[in-house]
C-alpha cells in the first residue's frame, strides 16, 4: 500500500509535483500514466526516498520508506534500468544489493532465473542490451520478494516475449496480494495490465479510478462505415438520431447508433456497405481526453500528409 498526502516537489520556481493525494492498494495492478514531465518519475523517486519531498508525506505499507527496517522486503523498485556500473557483472550487482539485507546467493540465483538472465549473469553489464538491462532492473526489484513493487516504464526495451512475460508476472504478483504500481507510456500495454489507473498531468492527479471507469468516461463509441453510397446513407442514419462525420469520400464515422442498427438501415435502403467496424473506446482515448490540457511539451498540429 502506498499513500501520498499533499505530496509536493519543487525544483526552484518549478513545481514538479503539486500537492497530490493518492492511494495505491494491494492486490491489484495500479497504472501510473501521464505525459512526459507530469511528475511520474519524481513521485516514484519520492516514494523510495531518492528525492526528498518539498512538502507532504508519502508512506509505504504504513511507514515512510526510510523508516522500514528492511526496505527491500517492503518495496522493490525499478526506476532506472541499467543504473549499474558497466564494468560489474549482473550477478555481482545483485549480490551487492542482496548483501545489505542478508539476502543470500540462493535468492540471487533465483531472481536471475526468474528474469531469464542466466546466460548473461556473469557478464559485465556494459555490454547488455536495453532489454537485458531492464531484466536486471527487474531482478533487483524482485530480490527482496517485496510486498510492494514500483516499476517505472518496465516494458521499455523488452522484446515481445518479455512484454508478455512481464504482464503475466505483474498480474501474478498482484494476485498474491502485493501492491503493484507501474508507469508506462504504452496505453495498450497498460490497458491489458492495470486494474486501476492514476493519471498525472502537470504535477496533479487528473484521474484516479478503476480502469473500466476511466475507459467508460471517454467519449462515445463510434462505428466506422465504408460504403460507395455513403452520401446516400448519411441522411438516413441522421434520421435515426446518429451523428455522422465524414472521413473520406466513402468512409463515415457514426456515433450514437449501434452497428447492428446501421446495418439494418443500410439493408433497408439497399445501400451496399463494404465495411462496418465498431470502434470501442480505448484507454488511449480516455487518456488523451483527460490530459489534453496537461501536456507540457505539445507537438505542433501538423497536417496528416506532412506527418506521414
Amino acid at each position: 500500500m502506498i499513500e501520498a498526502q499533499s505530496l509536493t516537489k519543487r525544483y526552484g520556481a518549478k513545481t514538479a509535483v503539486d500537492s497530490i493525494d493518492f492511494t495505491v492498494r494491494p492486490g491489484r495492478v495500479t497504472g501510473f500514466l501521464g505525459p512526459n514531465g507530469a511528475g511520474k518519475s519524481t513521485t516514484m523517486r519520492m516514494i523510495v526516498g531518492l528525492d526528498r519531498p518539498s512538502g507532504g508525506v508519502v508512506r509505504v505499507n504504513g511507514k515512510a520508506y526510510v523508516r522500514h527496517h528492511a526496505p527491500l522486503r517492503q518495496v522493490g523498485a525499478l526506476l532506472d534500468a541499467k543504473a549499474v556500473h558497466p564494468g560489474r557483472s549482473a550477478r555481482h550487482h545483485l549480490l551487492a544489493v542482496a548483501a545489505t539485507h542478508r539476502i543470500g546467493a540462493k535468492r540471487v540465483d533465483e531472481v536471475i532465473g526468474l528474469t531469464g538472465l542466466e546466460p548473461v549473469a556473469g557478464r559485465r553489464v556494459g555490454g547488455f542490451s536495453l532489454g537485458m538491462g531492464q531484466r536486471l532492473g527487474l531482478a533487483v526489484a524482485l530480490l527482496g520478494d517485496p510486498a510492494t513493487l514500483i516499476l517505472d516504464e518496465p516494458v521499455n526495451g523488452l522484446d515481445p516475449d518479455g512484454v508478455v512475460w512481464l504482464r503475466g508476472l505483474v498480474r501474478r504478483l498482484a494476485v498474491e496480494g502485493r501492491t503493484v504500481f507501474l508507469s508506462s507510456h504504452l496505453m495498450s500495454e497498460m490497458a491489458q495490465t492495470a486494474d486501476h489507473v492514476i493519471i498525472l498531468g502537470r504535477g496533479r492527479v487528473v484521474a484516479d479510478a478503476p480502469m473500466s471507469e476511466i475507459v467508460a468516461g471517454a467519449e462515445g463509441d463510434s462505428v466506422q462505415v465504408r460504403s460507395p453510397q455513403a452520401e446516400h446513407l448519411t441522411p438516413l442514419l441522421e434520421a435515426e438520431g446518429a451523428t455522422v462525420s465524414r472521413a473520406e469520400a466513402d468512409l463515415i464515422s457514426v456515433t450514437g447508433l449501434a452497428a447492428a442498427r446501421i446495418a439494418e438501415v443500410a439493408a433497408g435502403a439497399r445501400v451496399v456497405v463494404h465495411e462496418l467496424t465498431p470502434l470501442t473506446r480505448s484507454l488511449e482515448d480516455a487518456y488523451m481526453a483527460l490530459t489534453r490540457d496537461e501536456v507540457e511539451y505539445r507537438t505542433m498540429q501538423t497536417s496528416p500528409e506532412v506527418d506521414r
Binding site: P26, G27, H69, A70, P71, L72, R73, Q74, H85, R88, S89, H92, H93, L95, A96, V97, A98, A99, T100, H101, R102, I103, G144, D145, P146, A147, E176, G177, R178
Partner: peptide
C-alpha cells in the same frame, strides 16, 4: 489478500559486505 514480506533486516555489516562486493567486482 495482503502479501506479508519475509523478515530480515537491513544492517551495517550487510552494507559493509555489499560495498566490499562492489569494490572488488
Amino acid at each position: 489478500s495482503v502479501f506479508v514480506p519475509a523478515e530480515g533486516d537491513l544492517y551495517l555489516g550487510g552494507v559493509i559486505r555489499s560495498e566490499w562486493i562492489k569494490f572488488r567486482s
